[in-house]
Design a binder for these strands. Structure first.
Lengths: 352, 352
DNA sequence: TGCCTTTCCGCAATCGTTTGCACGTGGTAG
DNA sequence: CTACCACGTGCAAACGATTGCGGAAAGGCA
């Protein structure tokens, strides 16, 4: 496996200048002919010739130069905690696909939940003239990166988390409705004592889902003891395991369990079987997200399906909107999750 | 949810020029002082003052301008078929993490397997001055995008697929070793008639894994009838289902099945249970990739684990290498997959 | 025919950096 | 004392596009 690459000289990309020479007009004319916005300023025949030449010479505009001149790069930044978490790829796909249609390019960065690093990234992105930012970083309150963007007038839209300060758009799932649906489902199955494994309270989803849980059980006339909720240390399987152990360790009795997240639910599953409890015979289990393959585990997980892709698309649309209008209003859109009932929930036996 | 964003004017980013005024030197001096490569040309005290000013004014260099001038953007493009396929995120993460360490930024695009679109993307990337490309697009032979890059002297490294033309580096998994391990494992369990669901033959992995399969069974003295392999139409669950149906429809007898991919294996699982066959009692099943959660399905899937992250990291390292050296040699590195034995394989009963 | 408006196009500045070259100073060697 | 070198810095030209402005030609109207 050792060959030299062919040493032919690199053919440089054709520029607007070469096109101009080729057609016999000034470069400014070429520029205008190429831009659909300004094309009407140029005679139709010239436009045609320019376009033909561009096609023939394989002209592709140098976006860096354009960006430098205009101060905008038709680039937006996407900031997520971790690409490997299966929740995020669909978001990104949704974002990219709609951005793409508008001629924008996305650049993606992982923050790994580190706020300092995140600031750094935002800096770098600004150096690249990003027109806007879509952030899915979960950590909630007091985000310096967001504040700075707002100060610099660069639009930010949040996804899968709400804003803790005004003037920032967001697209989130309707956790309240989702959790309510789950509680209702369990209540209909005869469950009365329902427990909750909450996500980290520093995260938006962790907080809202826990609140939604308390509200929903109260609304259903079910017990809402503090002891029925355990807060997990992270959105991971081990954290779920630890949380359910804590729950069981309290000697708490519950016949159903709603986890703030599928991963937590998987951890819970481990913890329950470790304790000799069968799902759904002894405990019914509900997750959140509908990750790939949770429909094929044993037992298939009942969970709340989020419209990840659609959320991404919406976020991108909002951002494009804000980029287009001079003084945009911020808005928050909520997408309702869908309860997918599978094998992990069943009728309540006797409460334990 | 309707508030105006604060209408303060956007503070422009500080430029090298402002730094120059601030320090009282020429911009070229500032530029040199800022660049570690040229810093030695400048007096130490001036350097110190420039750096201090940069820090104080929060200077962050405009990468577009630098890119325009130098013709290189410290950006590399990543081209994958589909981000939502769980195989790719770890690749990307590995790439990004090592690129990041070298001060490069990645821009990611999905080709959706469309070659024309892919060419388009490569064009756009070149317009952004990408220094190099990492491509995971599966479609094999005769890739115009690759050829064009090679002609333009922009380094490309392939990942999860080999090159069909010389001068292109690649990092792939050692399919031969992997499949051999799987066959060996099955043979030890007493299986003699082993079938294979191959991936699309237009893909690199589809081809090499099938070849590896034939070679391995031959080497083991096992039957290698053509009828024992079915070629799937894609790397999807439905394709796997269809393939196993075809296999069963032939009245073919086999007690074990190696799929070219976990998704195909999942489809096969469906097909087998549809036919009333139990895994692993009636048929043992081996997948490829070790996707997330295949360890938790019923039965847990025996599969070949690929070092996705490490492959990405390697690819990035190679690319960085090729970017650094003027006339690089292309190389292909192979990473050995690891056979993870789980519940879907077991001793052969009688062949059917 | 003369004047005014429109249409179409060229000129040149500009975006923020990088970099080859020239220039001035101070020091060393012949 | 002259010649030369090294060092540190400034000058100005790029890179490739966009865009306000001005001017020439063409067309309309009286």
């Amino acid at each position: 496996m050792v060959e030299k690459t062919s040493p032919e000289p690199a053919r440089k990309a054709t520029t607007i200048k070469e096109l101009a020479e080729h057609v016999g007009v000034h470069i400014s004319t070429v520029s205008r002919a190429l831009n659909p916005e300004t094309r009407n300023l140029i005679g139709p025949d010239v436009v045609k010739r320019v376009l033909a030449a561009a096609d023939a010479l394989g002209y592709v505009p140098n976006s860096m130069a354009a960006a430098l001149r205009t101060g905008q790069s038709r680039t937006v930044g996407i900031l997520i905690p971790d690409l490997m978490n299966p929740v995020f790829p669909p978001f990104i796909r949704g974002i990219q696909d709609t951005l793409d249609g508008a001629g924008y390019t996305a650049i993606i960065a992982n923050s790994d939940g580190d706020k300092a690093y995140e600031r750094d990234i935002v800096q770098k992105m600004k150096a690249r003239f990003v027109a806007g930012l879509i952030m899915a970083t979960a950590l909630y309150r007091d985000d310096p990166a967001i504040r700075e963007c707002r100060d610099r007038q660069i639009p930010v839209v949040l996804i899968n988390r709400g804003a803790d300060e005004p003037g920032i758009s967001a697209v989130v799932s309707d956790d309240e409705a989702g959790i309510a649906a789950a509680v209702d489902h369990l209540a209909r199955l005869g469950h009365r004592r329902i427990a909750h494994i909450a996500g980290p309270q520093a995260t938006y989803t962790g907080m809202t889902r826990q609140r939604a849980f308390v509200a929903a059980v109260r609304a259903g006339g079910l017990p809402a003891d503090d002891d029925l909720v355990a807060v997990a240390a992270g959105y991971t399987i081990p954290a779920g395991l630890a949380a359910v152990r804590a729950l069981l360790g309290r000697g708490m009795r519950f016949s159903a369990l709603i986890a703030a997240n599928d991963q937590l639910a998987l951890g819970a599953l481990d913890g329950l079987s470790e304790a000799g409890l069968k799902v759904p015979r002894d405990v019914s289990l509900v997750g959140f997200n509908d990750m790939p393959l949770v429909d094929r585990i044993d037992p298939p997980l009942t969970t709340l399906r989020i419209q990840h892709y659609e959320m991404g698309a919406q976020a991108a649309r909002i951002l494009l909107d804000e980029l287009a209008t001079p003084n945009p209003q911020s808005r928050t859109v909520m997408l309702k999750p869908e309860l997918v009932v599978r094998g992990s929930t069943g009728p309540a036996a006797r409460p334990r």
